Amino acid sequence: MVPCSCMLLRKYGHFIDNLRIFTKGGSDGMGYPRSGEEGGRGGDIWVVGHKNMTLKQLKNKYPQKWFLAGGGANSRMSSLKGSKGKDCEVPAPVGISVNDENGEVLRELNKEEDRILVAKGGLGGKLHINFLPLKGQKRIIHLDLKVGVDEGLVGFPNAGKSLLSRVSQATTVTADYAFTTLRPQLGKIMYNDFKQISVADLPGSIEGAHMNKGMGHKFLKHLERTRQLLFVVDISGFQLSSVTPYRTAFETIILLTKELELYKEELQTKPTLLVVNETDLPDVQVNETDLPDVQVKLHELTKQLQSPKDFLHLFETKMIPEKAVEFQRIIPISTVTGEGIEELKSCIRKALDGQDDKENDVYHSKQLLNLQSSSSSS
């Protein structure tokens, strides 16, 4: 039996996933006209990946968000070539995407000490420029972080807020209106054997998110670095506003699947669990022979998910995904009573442990093939 009582939560408040910074390479040094030598080059600006850095820490340490490299030294009789100015390194989290002001990705920094040159220092003063120093390159850079977590909650606005609070005892901002979560809410579940699983409630998707509507790409980008997805739907369905159509739980799942497919098909290959929240429906029973209303709707949803093709005629063709998501488990819960929460924690743990085993098997298989290949070539 997997121990799954939550002992500790580490809450990351005021999470920042995008930061705009100003960079300027150092000016070069002036040359020495009499002997035709050159001044030192200005220092360069580098963005460097650091495992233990967050954008919030970067912003707190450099509140002005302005990075300036050192200027090159002038040449002189005792040193006919001036020394280069000091480079400036901007420490950024691993997993960061470095973009220019037009949104073009310059490079992703996916491991410790990955680096990219973002602003060059000026060239040293030489004869052909009258020995005068040149200014360094100025550039505005956006650091865009894709959250790397074990579990990413996927749902329409407000779907995961109370669930994250229940699963990890996190203190999240909840409300009855859409887009309460404007940035990822992060928490950690620690199990009795000290295993830790990170969970992120990501800003709610809406129909058209793949086209950057609503939170759009700001939501979807974070799913790329999650190990497992957790679809969260309400058994009573969802309606964004009075002017948008009401969607049943099944329709919600189909539309979320389509949004993932249109944004990046690879997301559909991630291991996925389905959480069905029963919070908003009273457990009404008409008479002793009837099933409670919640159970009827849950039975109906299960039937639809078992044979989704039988119900796709209810959708417009453009709303139907090419491939349905295959859920490893469907877990009904109640975020009000807490029913099903412990089972959910156990399922999350078992699914990730199984994924670890598969990844280890693949790694050892590759190692064995490499050894065999080396032996045959020698």
Rank of each mutant, 00 (worst) to 15 (best):
P308T: 03
Q328T: 08
E326I: 07
A170H: 09
K161Y: 08
P93V: 08
L223K: 01
D144E: 15
K146Y: 01
L298Q: 07
E104S: 08
S97N: 11
L68M: 11
D114P: 13
K81I: 10
S346E: 09
D17V: 07
R349T: 01
R115T: 09
I348D: 01
R10E: 13
G152H: 03
A249P: 01
N370L: 10
L352W: 02
G214L: 12
P157I: 02
Y12C: 06
R107Q: 15
K309T: 15
P292W: 06
E259G: 07
L255T: 03
K350M: 00
L132G: 07
E108S: 11
V2Q: 01
E251A: 00
P91I: 08
S307Y: 08
T174C: 11
G204A: 03
G136D: 04
D87C: 11
D176Y: 14
E265Q: 11
T174N: 15
A324D: 03
L58H: 12
K86A: 14
K51Y: 12
G121R: 03
L58M: 14
G71P: 11
P184E: 06
N158T: 13
L274H: 04
L106M: 15
L9G: 03
K126Y: 09
D280K: 05
L273C: 03
R115V: 04
D193N: 15
S376K: 10
A73M: 09
K65M: 14
G208R: 12
K138R: 10
V173C: 04
N99F: 02
L368F: 08
L134R: 10
I235G: 02
Q196W: 05
P321W: 00
N360E: 15
G72A: 04
G160D: 05
K358M: 13
I253G: 00
R183F: 12
S334D: 06
F15Y: 14
L267N: 03
D114I: 11
L256F: 00
I348Y: 00
K65E: 09
Y62M: 10
N102T: 10
I333Y: 05
T252G: 01
K345V: 02
G70Y: 06
K221H: 03
F311K: 02
V296T: 08
S375T: 12
L117T: 08
Q196H: 03
Q304K: 14
I16M: 12
R225M: 09
D28N: 14
H313P: 00
K61P: 07
G208A: 10
C88N: 08
L260E: 01
Y32W: 13
G340T: 05
F22K: 10
R10P: 00
V147R: 04
I197R: 09
E101P: 06
L298N: 07
D176Q: 14
L267E: 06
V275M: 02
N212M: 03
I253H: 00
A324S: 08
A159D: 06
K81V: 12
N102E: 14
G25E: 06
M7K: 12
I206W: 02
K126C: 12
G95T: 09
H14S: 13
Q306R: 11
R227L: 10
K84L: 04
E251M: 00
L163T: 06
V118G: 02
K323Q: 15
I235L: 15
R34W: 04
T248R: 01
I333F: 06
P93W: 06
I21V: 15
K84S: 05
E326T: 08
Q367I: 13
S375M: 13
Q57F: 08
S75Q: 05
I197Q: 12
S205V: 13
Q137Y: 06
T248Y: 00
S35F: 14
